[in-house]
Computed example of a mutant assay.
Amino acid sequence: MIINHHISGLLILFTLGVGLILTLLPAPDAIAAARPAFYPATVLFWVLMQPLRFGLLTAWACGILIDVIYGTPFSEHGLALAVAAYAVVKLRELLWAFPLWQQGLLLTPVFVLYEFVLFWIDGVAGAEVDQWWRWLPIATTVLVWPVWAFVLERLAELEVR
């Protein structure tokens, strides 16, 4: 595991950039509704794996970046990522004990919490909210988590060597 290793900030920024690109790539409407949340998954991966370098404030700042790109009100992604990151911080030691595929299952409530905060803020702001399709990215993110986390971990291990 890469928890006890110092990972360069450039690698973290690179992986966040890749996650952001995967999030922003245009896709057909049928696929876009089920697109995994790569960027939040990347942010939460680094919160989990680099606790001394990537915490709540950094997760909030990453969410603000998404808010600026999407033009969303009230810093909704910043708040949602900060709340999800807090949940990961609280579950961190439990998550470290499990393999990646089980981590994905254990992170399901965290991804639900992330989407719920977005859903709630959109509702309060009066934005049009599609209640059923909003939850589909949770399932795809949980399914993609083991592969995505494996790739991120291998990239970090290559740098450590």
Rank of each mutant, 00 (worst) to 15 (best):
G104Y: 09
F116A: 11
V160L: 11
I7R: 10
R35N: 09
G17K: 08
W135Q: 00
L113K: 02
Y39E: 08
P51H: 12
V117Q: 09
W46F: 14
E76Q: 15
Q50S: 12
S8C: 07
A97Q: 06
H5W: 10
T58W: 07
L118V: 06
L10I: 09
V88F: 11
F98H: 06
G55H: 01
T15N: 12
L81W: 01
G104V: 06
A84H: 06
P99D: 15
P109N: 05
D130R: 11
A82L: 14
N4K: 13
T140Q: 07
R154G: 01
R134D: 03
Q103I: 10
V110F: 12
E115R: 08
W133N: 11
V68L: 15
V89H: 05
F38S: 01
R35D: 05
Y86D: 00
L22R: 02
E128W: 12
H5D: 08
P146I: 14
C62V: 01
V117H: 08
P146Q: 15
T15F: 07
W101K: 00
V151M: 15
V110L: 13
C62L: 01
P26H: 14
Q131R: 10
L79Y: 00
A85N: 05
L56H: 04
H77F: 14
I2N: 10
H6W: 05
W133H: 10
E115W: 02
A27R: 14
T15C: 13
N4G: 10
L11Q: 01
R154Q: 11
A41S: 11
K90Q: 14
L48K: 05
Y86Q: 07
R161W: 10
